[in-house]
Design a protein around this nucleic acid. Structure first.
Lengths: 152, 152
DNA sequence: CACAAATTTTAGCCATGGCAACAAATTTGA
DNA sequence: TCAAATTTGTTGCCATGGCTAAAATTTGTG
């Protein structure tokens, strides 16, 4: 009766399992790349700001042990995003550098968008850090348009 | 010269390490609870929609194997969010139910906010799934206010 | 230069959440 | 009823990203 053919019945009924599985799959994927993105982004920032990126810096800025940093770096190296030689400072590969640029852009858009709808600076910074990895290109474009329209 | 005393120099310089570590720490925390939140939310939805929540449903909707579901359920049980007996359908504890309610509210706010700034339905659904776990209470309030102001 | 301090690496531990394969219980239906 | 199908549970594997502790290397100072 009041049931539209194949429409989402909103509220509780989560609709088609496959669709939902795809969504969660996306989130899991995003999660996979989160660490990599955070690392290349910070490495790029450190190189720009201090001329080099060292394990200590990453460990203090991420708030994890240097052992953890080392493990992640080993993976990023394996995946061709970071190039490093023992006991020397860290570098990004071309691929890593490209990824860093994209991430930084995205981060900035999310941050600016949050600011422009009225989120206080420090909170926007925190939220952007978590949110940036989960925002689609489409949504990002909408954020960008909103910023442009409302700026100053 | 155009350098204000102790201000964030924007762009590349990531500012104080401790602050930054706190931010990443928050993201890690959020991540910790993500799985739990997704599970209780879906369990609640399934119970509402179909009268019960079974391992098969979770596995097909999350798109993971039932072995994985079982493992997570064991943890949630240990943590007092889910109550279950062997070979029977799953239930939420009071605590689990409360968490589910909070998550559902949050999910809906994020989803509606995205819709209200012009994100298409299916994309909003995907993005909300990933974003919801990383939005602070403050930002959520701002989302909510925006929705109210722009609704209809 | 030599040695102490700082940094980096390694090793070994843990929990989580993936998986496949197999085992057990329950439901179904002929 | 009872065999087959489905559902659930268990086991053992893997990778990731946490940790501490100890070893190795580099750095810097006296």
């Amino acid at each position: 009766m009041s049931k539209k053919p194949a429409e989402t019945q909103k509220s509780a009924i989560p609709d088609d399992p496959e669709l939902q599985a795809q969504r969660f799959g996306r989130v899991r994927e995003a999660h996979q790349t989160e660490t990599a993105e955070d690392y290349v982004e910070l490495i790029a920032d450190l190189i720009e700001a201090q001329g080099e990126a060292r394990v200590v810096d990453l460990s203090s800025r991420f708030g994890v042990s240097h052992a953890t940093v080392n493990k992640v770096i080993a993976r990023l190296n394996r995946e061709g995003l970071v190039s490093n030689r023992k006991y020397r400072s860290l570098f990004l590969t071309d691929e890593g550098r490209e990824l860093a640029v994209r991430c930084k852009e995205r981060h900035l858009i999310v941050f600016n968008f949050l600011r422009s709808i009225g989120v206080p600076e420090e909170i926007a910074e925190i939220d952007a850090e978590g949110v940036e990895h989960h925002v689609s290109e489409e949504t990002l474009k909408i954020f960008q348009a909103y910023i442009s329209k409302h700026k100053k």
